[in-house]
Write a protein that binds this DNA or RNA. Structure first.
Lengths: 343, 343
DNA sequence: CTGAAAGCGCTTACAG
DNA sequence: CTGAAAGCGCTTACAG
């Protein structure tokens, strides 16, 4: 493939003003302009005013490349979604995290760069891009353990923080996660306390922390159960629908089901309605996430709240700590049961 | 607010190898290393091999800041979504565009940086960030005309291309758009050709090109119509549902409706089903977009296909042309009628 | 084909 | 408080 040159030779745009231009207009040295730009310490009142006026007059904006070359900092952080791109749009949890992280980082005047690493080729390009100094660190969001990007990031020595417990990685990886197992215990315990006796579960994939830990919480409460009560989905709405249909076939006497994500619960409710079952009268449904979907279903979802805001702010806090040289750390945040109408 | 320092003083990460390190290992000068990195022109076979070996041995990766400082190019482009963040996730069209643009740019070895400008504060931060040289240009996607970012970008002199005809802007703005008006004509003409006589329309907001032009196409075919046949929505599913309910109230003898986006059509179908109307037997429904939603509804949507791939690639082509100094341009692409089951 | 050198636009000790 | 100077890590004419 021929790659056209991206040259600016024919460009008629005027050259950007530099610090020297500002200094000349203000009648001071470049050093003084720089001091004004970086907080105004050790600058006299008149000088400061002259520089600010000159900046406005010239329309000066700092050249980030020059600055970063000196400071060795980029001033931005990557938010990497290591999933097929559609997931970004289907799963409202990603939205919550992105919003929270962006806001939190903005508080430190750091720009968040969202990157979707869907294919192997994407990952290669992004890996190069990350290492070239564009960002100071990365927030990595992915549901599956096998994210090859994780190993790449490790190899490249760029500080990063995961969302969710990384399966198969040790203490050399920083992460923030909700207490999946305890959340599952709360939900299943609640279902049982409401008198339900035959409680099924629709789990996430076994290579995800949510898939493993929420199922473990289910068994913590119920002990061993009939294997026909357990069906695996992949966190999509379609999977929830299919899994529910299968559960109904395998275990017709079901009176409650714990669905390990709200999105799958939406699908499960659709399957139940199609089968002529009333929720919660015939079958109670419990979700997980407390995403915005939870209040748009009919009936509204009883679910487990993940502390999205705190997950985001802890991810950012941890990342900034890593960047300034701290050791790796893991943060587990508690979850809450939110009772609505579906159970 | 106190902003903690983002320093690396305590960091124990080893310093990255530079070109001088590579040169020393390879036994050549820095210039030769640079030549190898930039295409290998004018480098002897042995030198090239030695440098490549040294790069592998040292794990060298170029410092993009240093490179950009010299070349005055960033090697990345911003994809800016100027909408409340939720829209990014609800509207599959954004997904299509993002995917297309990312792929197209990857072909030029340019990284796409996705940025969501939801609030006024976001726009300020992003404006600064854009101008600081992080990107060579921007692709701006937004439904509403009033995007303040557009004026900011113009003021800052950064090359950018819009998706959709910019209302209220002249020839000083480059954009790529589908032929909304003709698409609407095709759909309404089709509905009429199928024997429908009372055809309603659910439009987009009047400050969007889709809102204006698709309604114009409707009138092109039908001439003046009863104002009760026209209801405005805001492109969300909820709006489609509400608008359909209103249409049914205002015009009970309706036998077809042209809904100006697939997402709104999904809502409209839900409203029709709730009202006990069969689609298409009682009321035919035509959409617009041919997004992935069109094949997930029951019945599947008859709709107008927007050429997402071409829209994306043309946006990229135009942007690269602008960056290399070309004049502004507008590209209008044709749309197609896709007949499925809803009409 | 290759190296020495200038220069991209900043920040930051260092003197004063 | 301020300026002159070194240096961040590259690219690219310019000689040879």
């Amino acid at each position: 493939m021929t790659v056209p040159e991206l040259n600016r030779s024919r460009s008629t745009r005027p050259p950007r003003p530099t610090m020297d231009d500002v200094a000349a207009v203000a009648g001071v040295s470049r050093g003084t302009v720089s001091r004004v730009l970086n907080g105004g310490r050790n600058v006299s009142g008149p000088a400061l005013e002259a520089v600010e006026r000159a900046i406005r007059k010239t329309g000066y904006v700092v050249n980030q490349h020059a600055r970063s070359l000196v400071t060795q900092r980029a001033g931005s952080v990557a938010f990497i979604l290591s999933e097929p791109q559609d997931r970004l749009f289907e799963d409202p949890n990603f939205n919550n995290l992105l919003r929270g992280c962006t806001q939190s980082l903005a508080g430190y005047d750091i720009t968040t760069l969202l990157t979707v690493a869907a294919t192997a080729e994407d990952r290669k390009r992004i890996g190069r891009w990350l290492t070239a100094g564009h960002v100071d660190g990365a927030l990595l969001v992915s549901t599956h353990q096998g994210s090859p990007l994780l190993d790449e990031l490790k190899g490249r020595g760029l500080p990063f923080v995961l969302c969710g417990r990384p399966i198969g990685h040790g203490r050399d990886v920083s992460y923030v996660a909700a207490d999946d197992r305890d959340g599952a215990r709360q939900m299943v315990g609640y279902l049982r306390s409401r008198g339900h006796r035959t409680i099924g579960v629709i789990t996430g994939p076994p290579d995800t922390p949510g898939g493993v830990d929420r199922l473990a919480g289910y068994h913590d409460v119920l002990g061993e159960t009939d294997p026909r009560l357990v069906v695996t989905g992949d966190y999509t709405q379609a999977a929830g629908e299919a899994a529910m249909a299968e559960l109904l076939r395998q275990a017709p006497d079901l009176d409650a089901v714990f669905v390990c994500s709200d999105l799958m619960a939406v699908g499960a409710i659709a399957a139940l309605q199609r089968a002529g079952k009333r929720v919660p009268e015939d079958i109670a449904v419990g979700g997980f996430d407390d995403s915005r979907l939870a209040v748009t279903t009919t009936p509204r979802l009883t679910t487990i709240r993940q502390p999205w805001e705190r997950l985001s702010s802890e991810m950012v806090r941890l990342l900034l700590a890593l960047i300034s040289g701290d050791e790796h750390a893991a943060v587990i945040l508690p979850t809450d049961l939110v009772v609505r109408d579906s159970a």
